[in-house]
Design a protein around this nucleic acid. Structure first.
Lengths: 169, 169
DNA sequence: TATATTTTGTTATTTTTTTGGCAGATTGTA
DNA sequence: TACAATCTGCCAAAAAAATAACAAAATATA
């Protein structure tokens, strides 16, 4: 189903340890929980969304956040018309509040869903208040210290992969 | 800047041919266009968006589609309240219209931004009317013939990668 | 003009990843 | 109880990818 060989799955697992029992198999529930621990899904993290456009709103309503241990604490935008608008019970705030909010609410992760012109300044602020990680949906690569975890979602790249797929059957 | 060695870039290019001139270098504009051709970005494709929720709306307003040769021709949703609502000048239609629309308008690509319960039925319809490719934002893997190009954007996976990154510095 | 420098294409080497094979451990069956 | 059958962990082999090295071709410099 996953288009992966049994051998590869065993090798991959064994990079983190042995989770099964020879001759018997894997206990699926135990394995699932162990993988969750490896991925850090047993911990919870506080999160803010920067950019309350369509994508930001889609993510704010993204149910899986909680399931993965990410708790949406704040939403920010530079558009005054959105101030106070509630998404899942959380009011949109001005981006000027980010620095104080992150420091006071122990925020770990920022989701970036803003146009690229605002990215550099926003990232600077996030770095200054010691954010741990950035989930980056902006179409630029971020310039941050090594210690900050960045996970990019570059939809442009994905679209170009699709295009290549069509062009080559 | 890209954290890739010069050697690797040369190797990668040479999988598709030689684009430079020894001793002189690469003509950047020529190289850019050649890569665009390889990726199929010189052609245009007709596209529909299935699911006009926040994510669908975000993508409908996604400016880069046109730049990459993808033209949004139709938007569909099952929620009657959205019927007729215009996004970038295109009215949302009932999902029941998909089959006829795809056949009549020579649609190449479908963007799936619907909850997972509706996916199987929708994919069946898309396969039946010979869609070429699916850009899949739904949180399930699709069951389609080999000949159909599928590009998955699994945000859950990305979020778990982020989690792993934080858990391991 | 001769020589040094730069830069790509290509081949060789090294490293990494994937696959294959088998021993050890457990369950099922005659 | 003996013998298959099944399934994981681990090691070996094969394949793939990344890196290194160098020749060929162009420019820059003395």
């Amino acid at each position: 189903m996953m288009k992966v060989t049994a051998s590869q799955i065993r090798q991959d697992f064994n990079n983190f340890g042995g989770f099964g029992q020879q001759g018997y198999g894997y206990n699926v529930e135990y394995l699932y929980n162990e993988i969750a621990k490896i991925l850090g899904l047993d911990k919870t993290y506080n999160l803010i969304i920067v950019g309350a456009g369509h994508l930001g709103q889609a993510l704010a309503n993204y149910v899986n956040f909680e399931r993965r241990g990410f708790i949406v604490k704040g939403i920010f935008d530079k558009n005054p018309e959105l101030y106070g608008k509630e998404l899942r019970g959380i009011a949109v705030q001005p981006v000027g509040n980010i620095e104080r909010f992150v420091r006071e609410n122990d925020i770990d992760v920022a989701v970036l869903t803003i146009p690229k012109d605002g990215v550099a300044r926003t990232v600077e602020i996030l770095v200054r208040c010691n954010i741990k990680a950035i989930w980056n949906f902006a179409h630029v690569d971020l310039n941050v210290p090594e210690s900050i975890v960045v996970e990019n979602v570059h939809l442009s790249d994905s679209l170009m992969k699709l295009s290549y797929g069509i062009a080559n059957q």
